[in-house]
Design a protein around this nucleic acid. Sequence first.
DNA 1: TTTTAAACATGACAAAAATCATATTTTAAG
DNA 2: CTTAAAATATGATTTTTGTCATGTTTAAAA
Lengths: 232, 232
Amino acid sequence: MDDYQETRCEQCVIRQFNSLRAMSKEELKKVSDTKTTQYFKKGDAIFTEGEKLNGVFCVRDGISKLSKLSSNGKDQIVKLATKGHLLGQRSVISNEPANLSAIAVNDMQVCFIPKEGILNTLNSNSNFAVEVLRHMAHDLKEADDVIVNMSQQTVKQRVAEAFLYMKNNFGEDDKGFLNLTLSREEISNVVGTATESCIRIISEFKKENWIKASGKKLAIINEKALIDLVNS
Amino acid sequence: MDDYQETRCEQCVIRQFNSLRAMSKEELKKVSDTKTTQYFKKGDAIFTEGEKLNGVFCVRDGISKLSKLSSNGKDQIVKLATKGHLLGQRSVISNEPANLSAIAVNDMQVCFIPKEGILNTLNSNSNFAVEVLRHMAHDLKEADDVIVNMSQQTVKQRVAEAFLYMKNNFGEDDKGFLNLTLSREEISNVVGTATESCIRIISEFKKENWIKASGKKLAIINEKALIDLVNS
DNA sequence: TTTTAAACATGACAAAAATCATATTTTAAG
DNA sequence: CTTAAAATATGATTTTTGTCATGTTTAAAA
């Protein structure tokens, strides 16, 4: 443990991206005293569906998929979370087991914040409560939009949308390749389709020259075509 | 206007079902002074997608569908709200236009509460903020579950689930008919499918003796069969 | 009551997507 | 480096779902 040189929440820039920024200096200090930093490797579970959570996880680095098992045995990825996102908030607030599993898509650094710090602040600092509420409201809007897309769009449109989502939320490197690399199976779990169908559509996109691949990395080379497909 | 004999929020039992119950007597009094009662007939819009909302709507009676238009021109019903539900909360909290339209499915009585009362209380009463947060957390969990069902289940399973949802949330009358009556088109907008496909599946369920119809009313007569289908 | 429009229903067909089979390529382990 | 396992790819086929056409029933308006 090289805990001694870890960043303290007060100094951590990450919190500017989430509701922790609405905490007072004092509150943040308390949180920082109880937090622990954890490292997860690609494929590791931060928590799993049905697990009782004793706190929330603040993502400092890496990307996590939030997914749920459906009755047919397939995983559905509901959301992808990165730097600044708080995981497990909903569960802690409702005092219910986690509804989703959080699995590391690549290597991650995550701070665990025991729930007491969160719940106490929620009850005493309405600024913080409203800030959390605003984030939750945003998540809810996004979830509603996903429902509409999932139910009304074709698989092909959803695959196109997944690529646009990956570009907009996780960006691309200097050569135009998506920073987030998902396996074909993971993409199909985002899109909610059979892996083969997903692979076939990706091949099609490559033939159309809308995307290209280099190793495991994918790049969008005709964004307009993807957008047009989504809106058709 | 027969406003003089309307129920005041302090006396209204409906608020026990939503976050208004976390308001103090004083706060509730203020809200009650500014609220107005509105009546909507079947098909009327309480608000529509993209509209700027100046307050929230507390459903006293009747049922509303919350839906969103997808790019292909079809309506997707995301949620059905009844007695006690607050509509437009998310929009008011985020200070964004409504993401969904709220249309009356049958005749409704709804109280309009100007946003000032809500926002002031949110900022000053963390009890209330946390209560709103809890409700929002619950809605978010439900939305995530809908995403999984929409993306992983077959149309037939989703139709079965829609009937179970209607029974569980809106109940049935003394003869076993669902209290909520939706047109075939509305059911297909809940399920996210073509109206003809929906009609065909309903006919099938009738032939199997899982449901029966009398006029526009539908009744579940073999709930287990529907549950088994959903879980298969 | 008659007329008209909307809702419901069903057949025929087309399109989309899933499944099963089987290669090929890539990655990881020994 | 070699070998095994996993990931990617594609063909063939079946199943599911959507679309178009058309008929019937139901409800609403004149």
